[in-house]
């Protein structure tokens, strides 16, 4: 879900995703290469994102990933679901 969120604004390459995740989480998440790319591969196989080779800002070839329509839908639904769960957990914690 987090990767989907990072890609919601614009297509990005692997390192970009890692940096963005780190920035957005203010340093809480520092994914290592293995788990990041495994997650990317899974998302790709599920058809939620797609990748294509493009040149980067400093003229390197890199694979940019972008959300598919399906991915966007999934992001929305998962965000909603997550919100519901967090709210529920919060309510439980407050109740005690």
């Amino acid at each position: 879900m987090l990767i989907l969120k990072t890609l919601a604004l614009e297509p990005m390459h692997g390192y970009g995703i890692a940096v963005r995740l780190e920035q957005m989480s203010k340093g809480v998440f520092r994914p290592n290469a293995g788990s990041l790319f495994m997650a990317i591969q899974r998302l790709q196989r599920d058809g939620l994102i797609k990748g294509e080779w493009k040149s980067t800002e400093n003229n390197r070839r890199a694979k940019y990933y972008m959300l598919t329509d399906q991915g966007r839908k999934r992001l929305n639904s998962e965000t909603r679901e997550w919100g519901r769960q967090v709210a529920a957990i919060a309510r439980i914690l407050e109740a005690s």
Binding site: A18, G34, M38, Q41
Partner: peptide
């Protein structure tokens, strides 16, 4: 150190499918 070595990362990605 931070992100894991190249080969290990490859192995992890490969074993996912």
């Amino acid at each position: 150190l931070e992100r894991g070595s190249l080969e290990i990362a490859k192995e992890v990605v490969r074993s996912a499918g």
